[in-house]
Write a protein that binds this DNA or RNA. Structure first.
Length: 437
RNA sequence: GGCUCUAUCGUCUAACGGUUAGGACGGGUCCUUCUCAAGGAUCAAAUCGGAGUUCGAUUCUCCGUAGAGUCACCA
């Protein structure tokens, strides 16, 4: 019984961009196959000629590539018409299906379709995740399995393909659970071996309903665009509805493939929590090499190479993902900040003191080495301690960034470089001098 | 509405029928600190309700309640 080689599959239809929820289903299928030394198949379910689009098929491939999920295939149902035809004929011949004359109620409907002859029985199956499930098939009626011999429909094609491709475990989203009895009926009529079913819980939006376009970003590749790392997405997705039973949270896909089991998959749906995703992404961001980080930053920030070399580690301190850089006010790195002179003065300080501190600071920094942030800090720290850290440091930092919130003055000075730093400080000094007279 | 499924902190989740119900995200407070971020410490926060089984139910059973999915000549 357990002799069967593990074969799982993901069977998306190219009728829209590949969904983040589908990505998780694919991941679970993939992981289960890997965990059991099995095979993972990608099958494009494009029997609906009206709605299937090549661009969406591409989107599916790009999605798998981005996540790094290797698969067997891809197979396309649109290329397997002859196979289905043969199976439909078998069903017709055995009396399990029949050609039904119909009244076309809607435009495009046929006057003749092929229906499955429902034996009206009770179908029981054991779902690996949900447990025993029972359906009365009588309320399904004689459902349509093909428009004609050359135009098979979903239920038929899934069963035929899963049967012929020797799929051992059908791991799919819970929304498919009510399709299962129909498919078991066809499968039995065709004499295929029954796969093990595992219906994984849905990915939910914050309102607890199935995630859809109206909830925001649902296409997997939207997350690529937003600057998330595929490793972070995988790690996050794996933890929606599954957990290792330990307190380890960071997993590479290889580690996941080792640990994954259907027994630990949750029964109920899981709400998609962007904050947690961001946290995962940050974990991976912190592990990236300097080169990778610089490359990522370049997509969102224009900065001289040499300056970027000093700024990269500071830039990622305040973000979870690269695209967050868009929301950061970073213009002060490239252009002289514009600000109100009065903002140069720290809390209880005044313009006279601030002017003096600026003057002294400029002198100190002119003699300082700028080869590291520490050098800069060391040169001015004692003076700041003596006069009051806020009184000295705030004007410097403000003169450099023009912002109430920014990295510390030493870091800023280091990134901007000596020439630019001194110039901005002189500028500030000039402004405050003018204010006084 | 029919059918099917689900139910532990706000969210993701852990807990052989016996735990002060644990962890993570997020949040609060404190420390650090010129600001922000980061970091460290710390706190708050949950077993849907009612019966039953049991010496003992988060855990098993039943009934409620709530939520979800699905009901195509789509997949």
């Amino acid at each position: 019984m357990s002799e069967r080689k593990v074969v799982t599959r993901m069977a998306p239809s190219p009728t829209g961009k590949f969904h983040i929820g589908s990505a998780r289903t694919a991941l679970f299928s993939y992981l289960y196959a890997k965990a059991n030394n099995g095979k993972f198949i990608l099958r494009i379910e494009d029997t609906d000629k009206e709605r299937s689009k090549k661009e969406f098929e591409e989107n599916i491939f790009d999605s798998f590539d981005w996540l790094g999920l290797k698969y067997d295939g891809p197979y396309r149902q649109s290329e397997r018409t002859e196979i289905y035809k043969e199976q439909i004929q078998k069903l017709l011949d055995s009396g399990n299906a029949y050609i039904s004359k119909e009244e076309a109620k809607e435009e495009g409907q046929r006057g003749e379709v092929i229906r499955f002859k429902n034996p009206n029985t009770k179908i029981k199956f054991e779902d690996k995740i949900l447990g025993d499930i029972e359906f009365e098939t009588s309320d399904l009626g004689d459902f349509v399995i093909a428009k004609d011999l050359d135009t098979p429909l979903y239920h038929l094609t899934v069963v035929v393909d899963d049967g012929l491709m020797k799929v051992s475990h059908v791991i799919r989203a819970q929304e498919h659970i009510s399709n299962t009895p129909r498919q078991i009926l066809i499968l039995e009529a065709l004499g295929f071996q029954r796969p093990i079913y595992a219906h994984i819980p849905l990915v939910l939006a914050p309102d607890k309903t199935k995630m859809s376009k109206r909830h925001g970003a649902v296409a997997l590749l939207d997350y690529k665009e937003a600057g998330y790392f595929p490793e972070a997405i995988i790690n996050f997705l794996a933890f929606m509805g599954w957990n290792p039973g330990t307190e380890q949270e960071i997993f590479t896909i290889e580690e996941l493939a080792k640990e994954f089991s259907l027994e630990k998959v949750q029964k109920g749906g899981a709400v998609f929590n962007v904050d947690k995703l961001n946290w995962f992404n940050k974990q991976y961001l912190n592990k990236k090499s300097k080169e990778e980080i610089i490359a990522g930053i370049k997509h969102y920030v224009k900065m001289p190479e040499e300056m970027l070399d000093r700024a990269w580690s500071t830039l990622i301190e305040r973000i979870h993902k690269f695209s967050d850089l868009k929301d950061e006010n970073l213009t002060y790195y490239n252009s002289t900040p514009i600000y109100d002179v009065k903002d140069l003065i720290w809390k209880n300080s005044d313009e006279y003191q601030t002017k003096t501190y600026l003057e002294d600071s400029i002198k100190i920094l002119e003699d300082s080495s700028f080869s590291s942030m520490e050098d800069i800090k060391n040169s001015i720290w004692n003076y700041a301690e003596e006069k009051g850290r806020g009184d000295v440091l705030w004007p410097i930092r403000f003169a450099l960034s023009g912002l109430a919130k920014s990295p510390d003055p030493f870091t800023l000075a280091f990134i901007l470089g000596k020439v630019e730093t001194i110039e901005r400080l002189r500028n500030a000094h000039k402004k405050i001098s003018e204010m006084i007279k």
